[in-house]
């Protein structure tokens, strides 16, 4: 029987993958995608909890999260494009103009 914990385990693992991606990736775009993974892990947990709690609050929250994520991605990508135009790179390691 599939229960709450099954879903949460999937969500936790997905979150972990996202964290791993953020830490490992040197490419801003892929880093950003890993962040999306993390958000989605949260969404899964929210939906699972929502089902478990027999309410719709969690689903409403997921709705907000998806909307916000869309807006965030739009702005973020515009920013990354502008950065690329200026510096010709999207490497995380190349963001070093302002070191001590």
């Amino acid at each position: 029987m599939i229960g709450l914990v099954h879903y949460l385990v999937v969500s936790a693992l997905l979150f972990g993958l996202g964290v791993l991606g953020v830490l490992l990736q040197r490419n801003l775009l892929v880093t950003y995608m890993s962040l999306e993974l993390m958000l989605n892990a949260a969404n899964l947990a929210l939906v699972a909890f929502s089902r478990f709690n027999r309410g719709l609050d969690g689903q409403v929250m997921v709705f907000f999260v998806i909307t916000v994520a869309a807006a965030e991605v739009a702005v973020g990508l515009a920013l990354i494009v502008a950065l690329f135009r200026r510096k010709q790179t999207v490497g995380v390691d190349d963001l070093t103009d302002m070191k001590l």
């Binding site: 099954h6 936790a12 089902r51």
Partner: peptide, 28 residues
Amino acid sequence: AGAIVALLSRALGAASASPAFPQPAVEG
């Protein structure tokens, strides 16, 4: 990443063992 997952799984493990889903009160 492993530490975070471990932390999560610890919390999950400490939670009650896989509670089954009740019938949904409202469909999403």
